[in-house]
Design a protein around this nucleic acid. Structure first.
Lengths: 245, 245
DNA sequence: CGGTCATATTGGTCAGGCCAATAGAAAGCA
DNA sequence: TGCTTTCTATTGGCCTGACCAATATGACCG
C-alpha cells in the first residue's frame, strides 16, 4: 500500500481511512454516489477486506458515508465542504486563544484539582506519550488532557468555552490540516511540556500551572510556525509570548 | 448475544459498541483503565474478534478509547460525563469565567485596538449609560461592548469563545434570571467601570485594561452575591478575585 | 408491458492463523 | 541488594478463505 500522508506505526485502517477521505475531498466519489465494493477497494489499495471494513466504519462513525446492507457504502457528505460554523479560523489564532485561556484555566484548576482528577490527568499524560509515538496518530489523548484540566476548574462555563475552542479546531479544515502537518516536528518536547503542566497541578501551584501551560502552547505555536511559510502569521506571533500581570 | 437497547437491522458492531459505551457509563471500566482483551470481549459477548475490533474502532473514532499496540484499549473519557450542554451553568460560574477570559481579551485588545474600534467602543459606553437609565432595559449595549472588545483582539477564536459565554448566559435560565435580578443594584458603578475599561484601551495599556475588566466583572460578581442567598456560592466566590501574574 | 423469479453482487460475520509490539517475570550482573 | 538484560506470555494488527443474508439485476413468463 502506497498512500500520501501515510506513515508507519499507523494502523492500516487509519491510513486507508485518510486515503478515502482524501478521495472524497478530491471529488472521486461525489455526494450520494456509491463507493467501490469492499472487495474491490481491498484490491485497489492492496489490503484485506477486514481492513477496508474498518476504514469504512471509521468514515461511517464520522457521518461521512452510510452503509446499506447488500448494496454498498454511499457518500453522505464531503468533509470540510458544508461546515458552516467553521469560519476560517487559523491554527495560529486558535493556539493563541488557547494559550491565553487555557493558561488561566490551568491556574484555576491548580487551586481546585482533586486527587482523583490528578490521577486522571496523570494517566492522560501517559496516553499522550503513547499517542505521540505515532507521528500521524490522533490527538484524542491530547484533547482529553486539556479538557480534563478545564473540567478541574469546577467551572462549567470555563470548560464549555475551552471545548468550544477544540470544536473550532476540528471544524476548520485549515486549522486541523496545519496541526497535522506540525505534529511530527514537536514530539518529545510535547511530552515534557505536558508533564510540566501536570507537575504544577500536582503541586497545586497556580502560577506555575499557568506558566507551564503557556510554555506548552507557545511551543505548539512555534511548531506551527515551522510548518508554514506564512510570514504574516509569523510576524503576528510574539504578541502573546509574555506572561500576564 | 443479548444486549439492551439493541435493535435489528443494526449491524453487530454497532450493537456491541453501544453495549460497551453502556459499560463505560456504568463505570465498569473507569477512565484510564484498560478494557478486556479483544479475544476476551469476543468470548464475553459471544461475537467474533473482528466484530470486537470494529466496535472498538467505533469507540476510538469517537475519542472514547485509545488503542495501544500490544498493550490494550484504554478509556480516554466517559461519554456523557462532560458533554452536558450548559443548561445548568450558574451566573457565578459564568461571570467568573468572563472575569478570567475577558480580562485577558481586554489585555490583548489594548495592544491591537484601532481608532475606529475605539470610537465604536466609546459609543457603546454611552449606549450602556443610556440603557442603564431604564431599570427594565435590555443588556444589548453591554453585550455589544464586551463583544466589540473581544473582536478587537483580532483573534476570531478568542471572540468565538467569548461569544460562547454570552450564549451560555442566555441558554441558562438560572443565569439570565439572576442577572436580571441583580440589575438595578449596581447601576452607576457599572458605567464608571466600563468607562475605566475604555480608558485603558484608549491608552493602549494591556495591564490596565486587564485590571479594569477584572474589576468590572468582580463588581458584577458582587452584585450577583447581593441578589442571592446561596451561601455556598458566596463562599466559592473570592478565589478569582486576585489578579494573575 | 408488467410482474416473477433465478442469479450475481455486496455487505455481515465468523474461524483460524501468523506476525509484531508490549509488558511482566525471570535471570544475570554490578 | 538493586539495577539491567533477557525471555516469554499476552495483546493488538492483519490476512486468508469461507458462508450467509440482503439487495440488485436481468431473463423469463403471463
Amino acid at each position: 500500500m502506497k498512500m500520501a500522508g501515510a506513515s508507519r506505526n499507523d494502523r492500516l485502517y487509519q491510513e486507508l481511512a485518510r486515503a478515502l477521505i482524501a478521495e472524497l475531498v478530491a471529488g472521486t466519489w461525489p455526494q450520494g454516489s456509491r463507493l467501490p465494493a469492499e472487495r474491490e477497494l481491498a484490491v485497489q489499495y492492496g489490503v484485506s477486506r477486514p481492513t477496508v471494513r474498518e476504514a469504512i466504519i471509521a468514515l461511517e462513525v464520522q457521518g461521512l458515508v452510510e452503509v446499506r446492507i447488500g448494496s454498498g457504502a454511499y457518500v453522505l457528505r464531503i468533509p470540510g465542504a458544508d461546515d458552516v460554523p467553521g469560519f476560517n479560523i487559523s491554527a495560529f489564532e486558535l493556539t493563541e486563544a488557547r494559550l491565553v485561556f487555557e493558561g488561566e484555566a490551568a491556574a484555576l484548576a491548580a487551586a481546585q484539582v482533586t486527587d482523583a482528577e490528578l490521577a486522571e490527568i496523570g494517566a492522560l499524560v501517559d496516553a499522550i506519550a503513547a499517542e505521540n509515538l505515532d507521528p500521524a496518530g490522533s490527538d484524542n489523548a491530547d484533547r482529553a488532557f486539556h479538557l480534563a484540566i478545564a473540567r478541574a476548574t469546577r467551572n462549567a462555563a470555563v470548560s464549555e468555552a475551552i471545548e468550544k475552542l477544540w470544536e473550532l479546531r476540528y471544524s476548520s479544515p485549515e486549522a486541523s490540516l496545519l496541526h497535522a502537518k506540525a505534529r511530527g516536528a514537536n514530539i518529545k518536547p510535547v511530552v515534557d511540556e505536558h508533564t510540566a503542566v501536570f507537575a504544577a497541578l500536582k503541586a497545586r501551584d497556580p502560577d506555575a500551572a499557568r506558566a507551564a501551560m503557556r510554555a506548552h502552547l507557545a511551543a505548539v505555536l512555534d511548531s506551527l510556525l515551522f510548518a508554514t511559510d506564512d510570514r504574516a502569521a509569523v510576524e503576528k506571533h510574539g504578541r502573546y509570548s509574555r506572561t500576564p500581570g
